[in-house]
Simulated scan of single mutants.
Amino acid sequence: MISRARFPESTEERAERVIKEIKKLGLGPAAAPREAGGLESVAPKSPSLQEVEQRIEWNLKAASPGATELARAVANKTAREGLDLAASLAGGHVSHRDLNAGQLANLEAVIQVIGRPAWFVEGDAPDTSAATAKDDFWVAYINTAQNAILDICARVGCIMVGSAEPFVPVATGWLIGRNTLVTNAHVAGAVARQNAALAATDVRQGWRLRTDRPCVVDFRFEKGGSKHSRFALDEVLYVEGGDKPDLAIFRLKPPTADAAGGMPSPIVMDLKAQSNGWAKRNVFVAGHPIKDLADDQNVFKVFGELDGTKRFSPGCVLELLGTDVLAHDCSTTNGSSGSPLVDFASSKVVGLHYFGRPGARNEAVLLSAIADHPAIVRSQTGEWGI
């Protein structure tokens, strides 16, 4: 994923974030109790070494089916070291300054595996069949917002290149308006080109779809799924030329023969300014993660197989960065670019995910901060629909 992150996290910020998450997940002696009442009262359950080890091992085996013994050994080392470090950090026995890169990576892998799952989506719903007691908090939220989650996942698609099977997943997009798809500007380069000679006078700044690289969006690209809902990209409508917001809009062609059920309707966005802050708000990302370019083993520990099929990743908003970026901790990787960041409470999209990597906080464009952006306005008025 091409990075447009404008708020790099310092070592101190990263350490503070990790230690807070350790306590929140009940991994140390100083775990803070949740607020009384409602879903927030679901208490954190400290997972056993065996539970953590089994989940990491399962993910590693899914990513590399032939590496059974290696997966077991890596899972054991990661789980043991990660849990020991979590207890030591939470108890104040060691400082983050005492940790090397490998130790910190194991610690963060354990945190993500325990508290930030990345479930496959089947039939537009997160598959939580493998969930254990430590997942009760998120499962409760999912059950409460079940119908809204089904609707939202059905309107999130995998951007894929190719003219026939097998299509190659490259990123995520979702329906922002009638027949219009939003994703990141940095994704546009995979499916379109900019003609500088046209840019000065052209309403699309010279951007045109690549004729040598056909592209489709599949709203039913799920694990083990045989049904598809594919729409070809028809036209570039807008690509942000500056560093922010990381935004691009495309028009989709009318349904093809294999588009089951017709074109999904747009997802509702929350474009109203919030006065009560964003930190600690529970959110989720629906997207299509693909293999990390660096082949990072920690990614496989959390995601397992990365084939681009749809995933559901719950998490929290960490803070507002500047005026128009939400930092969040949902599990994402390559291919998640362009995913909607959805508020559990309202079931509305509050952000457009554009940056994330292992060990770093994720970043998403805060949509209410760009509510008057011409591309947002034109998408909402239906001007770009057909």
Score class of each variant (00 low, 15 high):
residue 344 F to H: 05
residue 51 E to T: 09
residue 343 D to R: 00
residue 340 P to Q: 11
residue 338 G to M: 02
residue 7 F to C: 10
residue 175 L to F: 04
residue 143 N to A: 15
residue 324 D to L: 00
residue 83 L to W: 07
residue 56 I to P: 01
residue 341 L to D: 02
residue 379 S to L: 00
residue 166 P to K: 11
residue 70 L to N: 10
residue 299 V to M: 03
residue 302 V to G: 06
residue 146 Q to R: 15
residue 301 K to A: 03
residue 52 V to I: 12
residue 176 I to T: 01
residue 164 A to G: 13
residue 118 A to R: 00
residue 259 A to W: 07
residue 213 R to M: 09
residue 28 G to W: 05
residue 282 N to D: 13
residue 161 V to K: 05
residue 106 N to Q: 12
residue 360 A to L: 14
residue 219 F to A: 07
residue 286 A to M: 04
residue 301 K to L: 07
residue 135 D to W: 08
residue 213 R to V: 02
residue 347 S to L: 10
residue 231 F to I: 04
residue 98 D to H: 11
residue 81 E to N: 15
residue 143 N to R: 15
residue 106 N to S: 15
residue 50 Q to G: 11
residue 311 R to K: 03
residue 305 E to K: 10
residue 59 N to D: 04
residue 359 G to K: 10
residue 330 C to A: 11
residue 7 F to T: 08
residue 212 D to Y: 02
residue 220 R to W: 11
residue 122 E to N: 03
residue 6 R to A: 15
residue 301 K to C: 03
residue 331 S to G: 09
residue 354 Y to A: 01
residue 191 V to E: 02
residue 97 R to K: 02
residue 267 I to W: 03
residue 133 A to D: 12
residue 87 A to D: 13
residue 89 L to Y: 06
residue 311 R to D: 04
residue 366 L to Q: 02
residue 298 N to I: 01
residue 200 A to D: 02
residue 260 A to M: 11
residue 72 R to C: 04
residue 336 S to I: 07
residue 333 T to Y: 00
residue 297 Q to N: 10
residue 365 V to M: 07
residue 183 T to F: 04
residue 125 A to I: 13
residue 165 E to V: 13
residue 232 A to S: 09
residue 49 L to F: 15
residue 73 A to R: 12
residue 26 G to W: 08
residue 123 G to S: 06
residue 294 A to E: 13
residue 79 A to C: 06
residue 317 V to M: 03
residue 154 A to I: 03
residue 243 D to W: 13
residue 330 C to H: 05
residue 241 G to K: 00
residue 194 Q to T: 11
residue 289 P to A: 02
residue 100 N to Q: 11
residue 308 G to I: 06
residue 224 G to Q: 02
residue 292 D to F: 06
residue 11 T to F: 14
residue 158 C to K: 01
residue 319 E to M: 09
residue 277 G to T: 06
residue 58 W to Y: 14
residue 319 E to Q: 14
residue 37 G to Y: 02
residue 289 P to N: 08
residue 37 G to A: 01
residue 329 D to G: 08
residue 386 I to A: 15
residue 349 V to E: 03
residue 144 T to V: 12
residue 332 T to W: 01
residue 355 F to G: 07
residue 236 V to M: 08
residue 318 L to R: 09
residue 356 G to W: 04
residue 212 D to W: 06
residue 79 A to G: 00
residue 15 A to W: 12
